[in-house]
Design a protein around this nucleic acid. Structure first.
Lengths: 239, 239
DNA sequence: GTCTATACACTGATAGAC
DNA sequence: GTCTATCAGTGTATAGAC
């Protein structure tokens, strides 16, 4: 059985960049009973990946150190190299995980029977991901900004196919007269940009907002994004 | 007199990350005549800043090395430390330069006499910056994603004041019934997100687009962004 | 499987000749 | 002002005891 609790001592999980300390408030998964080998390995890998996601997001690939990730995960540094042979292999796994979560949000797009429902639900789903996985979104953004050295093949295959498919759906809705004739490609870019902005630029938003966004503020944000974009493509409630 | 030309030998301006080579295609400013001391210093600083902007954008702060920046600028590494004492001071200057360019785009907002003109012109200006200064936009994005260790004070003062001012302008337009009643704050976030996306995620767009965007494609992008957002706030040509 | 100790490469920064 | 040579510190990764 595993107990989740917040640790404030024992490990130093602070990252210092230029004399500003960042407290990760590490939530660590502590084992109180021996597990079966497979479970133990899976649990450790998960813990390492969680710590790595945060550290890569905060410091970038170059700025992240295996030592800090190890401290965050509560393991000796050499242990990381046992589960993930190199820093790059660990990073690669983090990026792939995010990509999967992000792709899964696409399902709501396909299950919908019209643009208002489909695009509205897609915005909701992407906004929820921005809130639940801000670190993952940042790692993804950083990877793309650095010219996708690790996941370029995903961009060229999976993402390209996904984009083509969704563009066809949007074009069909346009042809059926169910939404305004906009450029499907740039509509998709706008959906990605606006929703991921709340994760990637979360620190800027938090600063301008004088603190973290509350539940109500997240609802307001979702409603604002949906309101403007749906009205912008001619399917808003008050067009 | 200064001649601008592209150098392909003499300096190795390639950055290798995990066995993928990135060619910066360095354009270096070569001096063929002695300048006055002040001019020479200004010219060198500008060259260093240009190289630094590219390297910081491509590799992040942690991944960037002074050696690579020096190679890009065509100077010995120790010379960098003469003009900019530390890596951080060089980085700080790069971020500040971008922030100034970015703020200057705000002028069109104030000079306008209505939402269609003001917000339309702001989108145009921000899109032009994304095209002209993609590296700068990426450095800015990276800085904010890493919790703004260097320019936090700018966020809290200059940017906060700018945001408040522009929110008041939008609110006035709403009160005067010249646009739909949307949340001004989230409208601003949407403007930033959509326009900067074309710089920060330029590599992804380029991949999906099978190559760099042409002049016509940039015009199409601008028209798409303006079309959806302006219609979304009720000031489009075909509401 | 886990951890300690360490090898080896590279980085930012500087001293000091010119 | 410029550049060569070099230092001190830190990083990833691994060897080898347990």
């Amino acid at each position: 059985m595993a107990i989740f609790l917040t640790i404030w001592s024992g490990y130093d999980t602070n990252l210092t960049i230029w004399s500003r300390k960042i407290d990760f408030g590490a939530t660590l998964n502590i084992i109180d009973k021996p597990m079966r080998k497979k479970d133990r390995r899976a649990e450790r890998e998960k813990r390492i990946l969680g710590a790595a996601e945060k550290v890569f997001a905060e410091a970038g690939f170059g700025g992240a150190t295996m030592q800090l990730i190890a401290d965050m995960a509560g393991l000796p540094k050499a242990n990381l190299h046992y589960y993930f042979p190199t820093k790059e292999s660990l990073y690669r796994q983090v990026v792939q995980n995010i990509f999967q979560i992000w792709l899964r949000a696409a399902d709501v797009f396909d299950d919908a029977d019209g643009p208002a429902e489909g695009i509205g639900a897609y915005i909701d789903a992407k906004m929820e991901i921005s809130r639940a996985h801000p670190a993952g979104s940042k790692v993804w953004a950083s990877e793309v900004m650095h010219r996708a050295p690790v996941i370029q093949d995903y961009l060229e295959t999976t993402l390209a196919e996904w984009t083509d498919g969704r563009m066809k759906v949007i074009q069909r809705w346009i042809d059926e007269g169910r939404m305004k004739a906009v450029n499907p490609r740039h509509l998709l870019y706008m959906l990605w940009a606006t929703t991921q902005h709340y994760a990637d630029f979360g620190h800027q938003i938090e600063t301008l907002n004088n603190g973290p966004m509350s539940d109500a503020e997240w609802e307001e944000a979702k409603a604002s994004v949906k309101g403007i974009i749906l009205a912008g493509i001619g399917v808003g409630e008050n067009p």
